[in-house]
Protein backbone atom coordinates (compact mmCIF):
# COMPACT_ATOMS: atom_id res chain seq x y z
CA UNK A 1 0.00 0.00 0.00
CA UNK A 2 1.17 3.45 -0.89
CA UNK A 3 2.17 5.69 1.97
CA UNK A 4 0.34 8.92 1.42
CA UNK A 5 2.02 12.14 2.35
CA UNK A 6 -0.15 15.19 1.82
CA UNK A 7 2.23 17.65 3.42
CA UNK A 8 3.31 19.32 0.20
CA UNK A 9 -0.22 20.49 -0.62
CA UNK A 10 -0.81 23.33 1.93
CA UNK A 11 2.33 25.19 0.91
CA UNK A 12 1.47 24.80 -2.76
CA UNK A 13 -2.05 26.19 -2.46
CA UNK A 14 -1.24 29.73 -3.73
CA UNK A 15 0.46 28.25 -6.81
CA UNK A 16 -2.46 25.87 -7.36
CA UNK A 17 -4.88 28.78 -7.01
CA UNK A 18 -3.00 30.66 -9.72
CA UNK A 19 -3.45 27.57 -11.89
CA UNK A 20 -7.15 27.44 -11.08
CA UNK A 21 -7.47 31.08 -12.18
CA UNK A 22 -5.99 30.18 -15.56
CA UNK A 23 -8.40 27.25 -15.90
CA UNK A 24 -11.34 29.49 -15.05
CA UNK A 25 -10.24 32.27 -17.39
CA UNK A 26 -9.89 29.84 -20.29
CA UNK A 27 -13.28 28.29 -19.52
CA UNK A 28 -15.05 31.61 -19.20
CA UNK A 29 -13.71 33.17 -22.37
CA UNK A 30 -14.23 29.95 -24.36
CA UNK A 31 -17.85 29.83 -23.17
CA UNK A 32 -18.51 33.47 -24.06
CA UNK A 33 -16.71 33.47 -27.41
CA UNK A 34 -17.97 29.94 -28.14
CA UNK A 35 -21.60 30.96 -27.61
CA UNK A 36 -21.35 34.17 -29.64
CA UNK A 37 -19.47 32.56 -32.55
CA UNK A 38 -21.58 29.40 -32.16
CA UNK A 39 -24.78 31.45 -32.49
CA UNK A 40 -23.50 33.04 -35.67
CA UNK A 41 -22.49 29.61 -37.02
CA UNK A 42 -25.92 28.20 -36.16
CA UNK A 43 -27.64 31.05 -37.97
CA UNK A 44 -25.38 30.57 -40.99
CA UNK A 45 -26.11 26.85 -40.95
CA UNK A 46 -29.86 27.55 -41.00
CA UNK A 47 -29.52 30.33 -43.56
CA UNK A 48 -31.03 29.97 -47.00
CA UNK A 49 -27.81 31.33 -48.48
CA UNK A 50 -26.01 28.18 -49.59
CA UNK A 51 -22.45 29.48 -49.22
CA UNK A 52 -23.00 30.44 -45.56
CA UNK A 53 -24.71 27.17 -44.79
CA UNK A 54 -21.89 25.14 -46.37
CA UNK A 55 -19.21 27.12 -44.61
CA UNK A 56 -20.86 26.57 -41.22
CA UNK A 57 -21.44 22.88 -41.89
CA UNK A 58 -17.81 22.44 -42.96
CA UNK A 59 -16.51 24.28 -39.92
CA UNK A 60 -18.63 22.28 -37.49
CA UNK A 61 -17.83 18.94 -39.08
CA UNK A 62 -14.10 19.69 -39.18
CA UNK A 63 -13.83 20.65 -35.52
CA UNK A 64 -16.06 17.84 -34.36
CA UNK A 65 -14.00 15.27 -36.22
CA UNK A 66 -10.60 16.11 -34.71
CA UNK A 67 -9.48 15.54 -31.12
CA UNK A 68 -9.34 18.66 -28.96
CA UNK A 69 -5.72 17.93 -27.98
CA UNK A 70 -4.77 18.14 -31.62
CA UNK A 71 -6.47 21.50 -32.10
CA UNK A 72 -4.67 22.80 -29.01
CA UNK A 73 -1.35 21.57 -30.39
CA UNK A 74 -1.98 23.29 -33.72
CA UNK A 75 -2.68 26.49 -31.91
CA UNK A 76 0.36 25.99 -29.69
CA UNK A 77 2.84 25.08 -32.41
CA UNK A 78 1.70 26.67 -35.64
CA UNK A 79 -0.56 29.63 -35.01
CA UNK A 80 1.78 31.68 -32.73
CA UNK A 81 4.48 31.65 -35.37
CA UNK A 82 2.05 32.71 -38.05
CA UNK A 83 0.38 35.39 -35.96
CA UNK A 84 3.77 36.53 -34.69
CA UNK A 85 4.96 37.19 -38.24
CA UNK A 86 1.73 38.83 -39.17
CA UNK A 87 1.72 41.33 -36.30
CA UNK A 88 5.45 41.58 -35.88
CA UNK A 89 5.48 40.17 -32.36
CA UNK A 90 9.05 39.53 -31.17
CA UNK A 91 10.09 35.90 -31.15
CA UNK A 92 9.95 34.22 -27.78
CA UNK A 93 6.89 36.13 -26.53
CA UNK A 94 4.81 33.75 -24.41
CA UNK A 95 1.62 33.27 -26.37
CA UNK A 96 0.60 30.00 -24.77
CA UNK A 97 -2.38 31.41 -22.90
CA UNK A 98 -3.75 33.31 -25.89
CA UNK A 99 -3.27 30.39 -28.24
CA UNK A 100 -4.94 28.06 -25.76
CA UNK A 101 -7.88 30.47 -25.45
CA UNK A 102 -8.22 30.82 -29.21
CA UNK A 103 -8.06 27.05 -29.68
CA UNK A 104 -10.71 26.37 -27.07
CA UNK A 105 -13.04 29.11 -28.25
CA UNK A 106 -12.96 28.03 -31.90
CA UNK A 107 -13.28 24.36 -30.98
CA UNK A 108 -16.14 24.86 -28.54
CA UNK A 109 -18.00 27.11 -30.98
CA UNK A 110 -18.53 24.04 -33.16
CA UNK A 111 -20.23 22.21 -30.29
CA UNK A 112 -22.16 25.26 -29.12
CA UNK A 113 -23.43 25.92 -32.63
CA UNK A 114 -25.00 22.45 -32.75
CA UNK A 115 -26.73 23.02 -29.40
CA UNK A 116 -27.91 26.45 -30.51
CA UNK A 117 -29.09 25.17 -33.88
CA UNK A 118 -31.25 22.59 -32.11
CA UNK A 119 -32.48 25.36 -29.79
CA UNK A 120 -33.49 27.59 -32.68
CA UNK A 121 -35.28 24.69 -34.33
CA UNK A 122 -37.10 23.94 -31.07
CA UNK A 123 -38.94 27.28 -31.34
CA UNK A 124 -42.09 26.76 -33.39
CA UNK A 125 -42.05 28.09 -36.95
CA UNK A 126 -45.24 29.99 -36.18
CA UNK A 127 -43.29 32.35 -33.92
CA UNK A 128 -41.11 33.45 -36.82
CA UNK A 129 -44.23 33.80 -38.99
CA UNK A 130 -46.00 35.89 -36.33
CA UNK A 131 -42.99 38.17 -35.92
CA UNK A 132 -42.68 38.59 -39.70
CA UNK A 133 -46.41 39.22 -40.01
CA UNK A 134 -46.02 42.13 -37.60
CA UNK A 135 -43.50 43.66 -39.97
CA UNK A 136 -40.31 42.66 -38.17
CA UNK A 137 -37.28 41.99 -40.36
CA UNK A 138 -35.56 38.60 -40.26
CA UNK A 139 -32.91 40.01 -37.92
CA UNK A 140 -35.46 41.54 -35.56
CA UNK A 141 -37.53 38.37 -35.48
CA UNK A 142 -34.45 36.30 -34.64
CA UNK A 143 -33.12 38.70 -32.02
CA UNK A 144 -36.37 39.65 -30.30
CA UNK A 145 -38.51 36.56 -30.67
CA UNK A 146 -36.71 33.35 -31.66
CA UNK A 147 -33.31 33.53 -29.94
CA UNK A 148 -34.59 34.54 -26.47
CA UNK A 149 -36.87 31.50 -26.47
CA UNK A 150 -34.17 29.26 -27.93
CA UNK A 151 -31.67 30.29 -25.25
CA UNK A 152 -34.18 29.78 -22.49
CA UNK A 153 -34.71 26.21 -23.72
CA UNK A 154 -30.98 25.69 -24.03
CA UNK A 155 -29.66 27.01 -20.71
CA UNK A 156 -29.16 23.57 -19.13
CA UNK A 157 -27.38 22.19 -22.21
CA UNK A 158 -25.16 25.24 -22.52
CA UNK A 159 -24.15 25.00 -18.87
CA UNK A 160 -23.49 21.28 -19.12
CA UNK A 161 -21.24 21.96 -22.09
CA UNK A 162 -19.45 24.59 -19.99
CA UNK A 163 -18.79 21.99 -17.28
CA UNK A 164 -17.30 19.59 -19.82
CA UNK A 165 -15.23 22.46 -21.16
CA UNK A 166 -13.90 23.20 -17.69
CA UNK A 167 -12.69 19.60 -17.39
CA UNK A 168 -11.18 19.76 -20.85
CA UNK A 169 -9.08 22.79 -19.95
CA UNK A 170 -6.74 20.30 -18.27
CA UNK A 171 -5.60 19.39 -21.79
CA UNK A 172 -3.59 22.60 -21.99
CA UNK A 173 -0.85 20.61 -20.21
CA UNK A 174 0.35 19.78 -23.73
CA UNK A 175 1.63 23.34 -23.95
CA UNK A 176 3.12 23.18 -20.46
CA UNK A 177 0.79 25.97 -19.42
CA UNK A 178 0.27 25.92 -15.66
CA UNK A 179 -3.49 25.63 -15.42
CA UNK A 180 -4.86 23.93 -12.30
CA UNK A 181 -4.01 20.45 -13.52
CA UNK A 182 -0.64 21.55 -14.85
CA UNK A 183 0.19 23.29 -11.58
CA UNK A 184 -0.76 20.21 -9.56
CA UNK A 185 1.42 18.07 -11.81
CA UNK A 186 4.36 20.42 -11.46
CA UNK A 187 4.15 20.49 -7.67
CA UNK A 188 3.78 16.72 -7.48
CA UNK A 189 6.73 16.21 -9.79
CA UNK A 190 8.92 18.62 -7.83
CA UNK A 191 8.14 17.05 -4.45
CA UNK A 192 7.97 13.47 -5.63
CA UNK A 193 4.34 13.36 -4.52
CA UNK A 194 2.65 13.02 -7.89
CA UNK A 195 -0.01 10.54 -6.72
CA UNK A 196 -1.18 12.74 -3.86
CA UNK A 197 -1.28 15.87 -5.98
CA UNK A 198 -3.18 14.17 -8.80
CA UNK A 199 -5.69 12.69 -6.34
CA UNK A 200 -6.12 16.09 -4.77
CA UNK A 201 -6.59 17.76 -8.19
CA UNK A 202 -9.10 15.07 -9.16
CA UNK A 203 -11.06 15.69 -5.98
CA UNK A 204 -11.16 19.43 -6.66
CA UNK A 205 -12.37 18.89 -10.25
CA UNK A 206 -14.99 16.48 -8.95
CA UNK A 207 -16.34 18.84 -6.29
CA UNK A 208 -16.56 21.77 -8.71
CA UNK A 209 -18.10 19.86 -11.60
CA UNK A 210 -20.46 17.80 -9.47
CA UNK A 211 -21.81 20.86 -7.64
CA UNK A 212 -22.16 22.75 -10.88
CA UNK A 213 -24.12 19.93 -12.50
CA UNK A 214 -26.40 19.78 -9.45
CA UNK A 215 -27.11 23.48 -9.90
CA UNK A 216 -27.87 22.86 -13.58
CA UNK A 217 -30.30 20.12 -12.61
CA UNK A 218 -32.09 22.49 -10.27
CA UNK A 219 -32.29 25.15 -12.94
CA UNK A 220 -33.70 22.61 -15.32
CA UNK A 221 -36.42 21.67 -12.87
CA UNK A 222 -37.25 25.30 -12.30
CA UNK A 223 -37.57 26.18 -15.98
CA UNK A 224 -38.86 22.89 -17.33
CA UNK A 225 -40.83 21.12 -14.63
CA UNK A 226 -41.39 17.74 -16.24
Amino acid sequence: MHDFDWSSIPGALPFLWDGMKISLVITLQAVVVGIVWGTLLAMMRLSSIKALSWFAAGYVNLFRAVPLVMVLLWFFLIVPEFVGQLFNIPKGTDMRLSSAMAGFALFEAAYYSEIIRAGIQSVSKGQMAAASALGMTYGQSMRLVVLPQAFRNMVPLLLTQAIILFQDTSLVYVSALADFFGAAYKVGDRDGRLVELLLFAGAVYFVICFSASQIVKRLQKKYHPA
Binding site: S124, G126, Q127, A129, A130, A131, S132, A133, L134, G135, M136, T137, V145, P148, Q149, R152
Partner: peptide, 21 residues
Protein backbone atom coordinates in the same frame (compact mmCIF):
# COMPACT_ATOMS: atom_id res chain seq x y z
CA UNK B 1 -40.09 45.52 -49.01
CA UNK B 2 -42.23 42.75 -47.53
CA UNK B 3 -41.61 43.78 -43.91
CA UNK B 4 -42.99 47.21 -44.65
CA UNK B 5 -46.05 45.75 -46.32
CA UNK B 6 -46.66 43.22 -43.55
CA UNK B 7 -46.54 45.96 -40.93
CA UNK B 8 -49.70 47.33 -42.56
CA UNK B 9 -51.51 44.00 -42.89
CA UNK B 10 -52.69 42.42 -39.64
CA UNK B 11 -52.62 38.66 -39.32
CA UNK B 12 -54.14 36.31 -36.75
CA UNK B 13 -52.97 32.68 -36.59
CA UNK B 14 -54.65 29.43 -35.68
CA UNK B 15 -52.25 28.87 -32.78
CA UNK B 16 -52.30 32.50 -31.55
CA UNK B 17 -48.48 32.75 -31.68
CA UNK B 18 -48.20 35.25 -28.87
CA UNK B 19 -44.58 35.61 -27.76
CA UNK B 20 -44.43 33.44 -24.62
CA UNK B 21 -41.37 35.14 -23.14
Amino acid sequence: NLSKLRARVGMVFQNFELFPH
